[in-house]
Amino acid sequence: MFTAVALFSGVMAVWRSYAEKHPESFLSFGKPKIGLVHVEGMIVDATDTLNWIRRLREDPGVKAVLVRIDSPGGVVGPSQELHGALERLRDKKPVVVSMGAVAASGGYYIAVAGDKIVANPGTLTGSIGVRMELTNLQGLMEKLGIRRHAIASGQFKTTGSPFEELTEHERAYLEAVVMDMHGQFVRAISAGRDLTLEDVEKVADGRIMTGLQALEYGLVDVLGGREEALELLRALAGIDDHFDLIEDPTRQRPIWKRILGSVEDELRIQGPVWVFK
């Protein structure tokens, strides 16, 4: 009898350990699960978050997903990848977005992929637009007596170089690229929020706004924090008080790695890049 009890206890311990480490596994049954996705800081590399979203989408035990955003924006490509991943997730299960202190520009771009958006009255959001920054060192180079020569295969290959002034032709070329990205942003908001392009364009001038103002413009659905967002998500998914909230186990990194990762992100986005910010 003792041996059977000990064996059963051992099996259960192994199962619990496996289920915690592999929440996507079919062995991880029991109470319904709600997935938690974090989007924090500058959006530069979305690989880990994209992998986690895919796992939540494929796990039949996950009935709904809460996305918590605390981000001022970031690089265009990764922001669009996260937006697309949440749209695919939303096709299979309810997704509610909870905005923290800030969910602006690229952060807001990601948010519109959810079924509902919940913002605090004082959340900073909006900032709908695209920005490109170029640094020009030509004057400094001349003072130092340094000359630079570039050989390029096309007239726009060196456009944006910090060592040359933009020509009017190059400026028009870059402005066309920025406005194309801006149009993509506006269309994504129009589709995600069921607003006309004209209504979105009225506030798509780069302005920052509070959650309360965003509610008036139809950019968010409800005022509240994470708890209110979780309650709304449970109602959409038909989940009672008994559920497990799970988050990406790879997110638990030591503090020194988080700091170094933030510094690395800042260094990686220096230079002529287009950002939702």
Rank of each mutant, 00 (worst) to 15 (best):
G271V: 11
K21M: 13
F26S: 14
T158N: 06
T3L: 13
L166Q: 02
A214H: 00
F185N: 03
A150T: 14
S9F: 11
P72R: 11
R193D: 07
V76I: 11
F163P: 00
L66R: 04
I208E: 12
G145V: 02
W256T: 10
V97Y: 09
T158R: 05
A111G: 03
Q184Y: 04
I208H: 10
E201A: 15
G77Q: 12
E201I: 09
I151S: 11
K31F: 07
G224R: 02
D265N: 15
M99G: 13
F276R: 12
F156T: 05
G154D: 11
R207W: 06
L137H: 10
D59L: 09
G145A: 02
V275Y: 12
G224S: 02
R90I: 07
K277H: 15
L144D: 10
A176L: 07
A235G: 08
A172W: 03
A204Y: 08
L245D: 01
G211E: 07
R90M: 08
L232H: 00
L260Q: 14
V96S: 11
G238W: 02
H149W: 05
V275C: 09
W15G: 01
Y109H: 14
N136Y: 03
G192R: 05
L144W: 07
G225C: 00
G30Q: 04
V220S: 01
K92A: 15
D244Q: 07
R234P: 02
V130E: 03
L140W: 07
P72I: 10
Y108L: 10
L197Y: 06
E175F: 00
R268G: 15
R54Q: 15
E216M: 12
L197S: 06
A113H: 06
Y173V: 02
A103D: 09
N136M: 03
A104Q: 06
V44R: 13
S79N: 09
L140M: 08
E20W: 07
T3M: 10
